[in-house]
Simulated scan of single mutants.
Amino acid sequence: MYKITIIAGARPNFMKIAPIIHEIQTATSNGHAIDFRLVHTGQHYDKNMSGDFFEQLQIPEPHANLECSGGSQAVQTANIMMAFETELVANPADLVLVVGDVTSTMACALVAQKLNTKVAHVEGGIRSNDWTMPEEINRLVTDSITNYFFTTSETANNILKGNGVKENQIFFVGNTMIDTLLKQMPNFKAPEVWDELDLKEKEYIVMTLHRPANVDEEGQLKAMIDEIVANTTDLPLIFPVHPRTAQILESLQISHPRLHTVKPLSYLEFNYLVKHAKAVITDSGGITEEASIMNVPCLTLRDNTERPETITLGTNELVGTNPENIKPYLEKLFKGNWKVAQNIPLWDGKTAHRIVEAILKLS
C-alpha cells in the first residue's frame, strides 16, 4: 500500500486538495494500492470550517488536527514542525503532499525530508519575486527541498528548470483550485447580502483586501478606498472583511453609503458574488484565478503577481499599490474595454486526475 499524507493549513488549501482526495478514492475503488491521511495543521483558525464545510467539498474531516494556530511566523513554523514530526513518526508515509504557499507547506516539507520521506508540491514553481511576502519565502524553501513538482503553468516549469530541477521531477498538470471551482459552480448560493441590498447581476463590485501592506497602513487603506468609492459611479461595493481589518476601518471612520462591509463568506457564497459581479477588486492571488475562469474583470492592488497567466490569458490587471493608479483602470472598466478571458492551458477541471495518475506511476 502506497501511503500519502496530505497537508492542509488554511481554508484555500482544502479547496486545492479536495479534488485530489476524490481521485485517490476513485483509484482505490479501481483496485490501486494507494491510500491517504489528511492532516490539518490548524494554521488558520476558521469558524466557517465546520462539518458542513467538509460536506460541501465532499471530503472526510481531517484524520488529525495539529491545532497550531497563532504566534509569530517563527513560533508557528516551530510549532507545526514539532507537531507534524510526532504525527509522521506515528503514521509513516511514502509521500508527503503539500499545497500552495502557507507556513504549513514549508514546515511540513522540512519535517518530511528530515524523516527521509519524499515530498510533492502542488503549485510548485510559482514566484512573485517579492521577498517581503512570507508566502514567497515559503515557496522558495519548499521548492528547494521538493522531490516532485505539480505545476500550474509553463512559467512555473521554466522557473524550476532555471533552478536546476530535472525534467522528470516536473509534472505540468494544471490548477486543482479550478477543479473545485468548476465542480462547485452549480452549488454556488446567494449570501444574505444579495437580498438585503437587492443586488442585481453585473450591478455591483466585490472587494477583498487582506495583505498587511494594504490594510495595516491606515493612510494607504483610506486612500485606496476613497479612490475606489470616487470612481465606481453609483454601484454598491461589497466588502467581505476580516475582523482585524474591520477594526481598522472603524478607527479610521471609513464609511460611505455604497460601501457595505459584510462578515467573511463561505466559499459557495463568496464565489456566487464574484460570478455575478461587474468586477472584483482584490489583493488575493487565488481570487485572480477564479475571476479569470469566470470571465469577471479583476483589478489586483499589488505590484507583483505569482500568477502571470491570469494577466496574459485571464481577466486580471495588475493595478499596483499606488491609489492614484486605480482611477484609469476603473474608467476602462466602465467604458466596457476590459479584456475577455482566454483558455488557460490545463485549467480544465481534470488537474487532480493528472496528479493521481503521476503518483500511481511514481508508486
Rank of each mutant, 00 (worst) to 15 (best):
I248T: 13
K189V: 04
K200T: 13
Q184C: 13
P186Y: 06
L181D: 06
T232E: 01
L182E: 08
W194R: 01
R244S: 02
L265V: 11
I238L: 11
L197V: 11
P212M: 05
V274T: 14
I254F: 14
L209Q: 06
T232S: 14
D179T: 11
N187F: 14
E218V: 00
N271Y: 12
A213M: 12
T261I: 14
G219H: 14
P236Q: 07
L235S: 02
A246Y: 08
T180F: 12
H276V: 08
N214M: 01
T232N: 03
E201C: 02
L265C: 12
H260S: 01
K263R: 13
V262D: 00
I228W: 07
E227L: 02
D226S: 13
K278Q: 11
H276C: 07
N271W: 05
M224G: 01
T233Q: 12
H256K: 03
T180A: 14
D198W: 05
L273A: 03
D216T: 04
M207H: 02
G174T: 03
R258N: 11
G174E: 04
F188H: 04
N231G: 04
V206H: 05
L197W: 10
D179W: 11
V215T: 13
K222R: 15
L235I: 00
H210T: 06
K200W: 11
E192L: 15
F172H: 14
V193G: 03
G174V: 02
